[in-house]
Amino acid sequence: MPDGAQAGPDEDRIEAAVRAVLVSMSGDLTAKEAALLAELEALGRTIARAKAEIAQLSVDDITGAHIPSATDELDAIVDHTAQATNEILDACETLEKLEAEVPPAAAEALQGAVTRIYEACSFQDITGQRISKVVSALKAIESRVEAAVANASGRPAPAPAAAAPVAPKTEGQELANGPQLPGGGTSQEEIDRLLASFD
């Protein structure tokens, strides 16, 4: 097992088996058997070292400071972009009120520009959804790290949150994946063709 990998029940059994073989074997060994035993002994040491390293991870720093700090920073990004977007929208609404006071050609140009700003401001929704996905991933990593360290150190795993009755997911919830990466979703043109194929 590579250094730093997670030790689990299977590795525990391998380590115990290696030690049992080493204890039970004695007397003359062939060169092949000796090499095999040496390999097994090295494997046992690697497992023990990995377990010790995992157990010594500063998991409290990770789960108590690093991940909460990262999620707070991400929440702050969402708040600040929302605030900035609302200020942009305030300015756009002020510009729209001026449309009645300028010549028609200028009013049309003004509205065209404001419309483009509205379209661009929808970034805040998309980035907010993407950041929510990252926060969820960080929380999943946090619980996996806690479980891995508890397993390696022999401590009981953290108790899961109080088990509240969980309603089965609806189809809408099951299919809610958030924004796709570029190239991963379906374009508006493809959606239009897909919808037309039902007619």
Binding site: L175, G178, Q180, T186, L194
Partner: peptide, 11 residues
């Protein structure tokens, strides 16, 4: 929506 998978559109 930002849900742009084909399965979402079909559903």
């Amino acid at each position: 929506t930002a849900e742009s998978k084909t399965e979402n559109v079909v559903a």
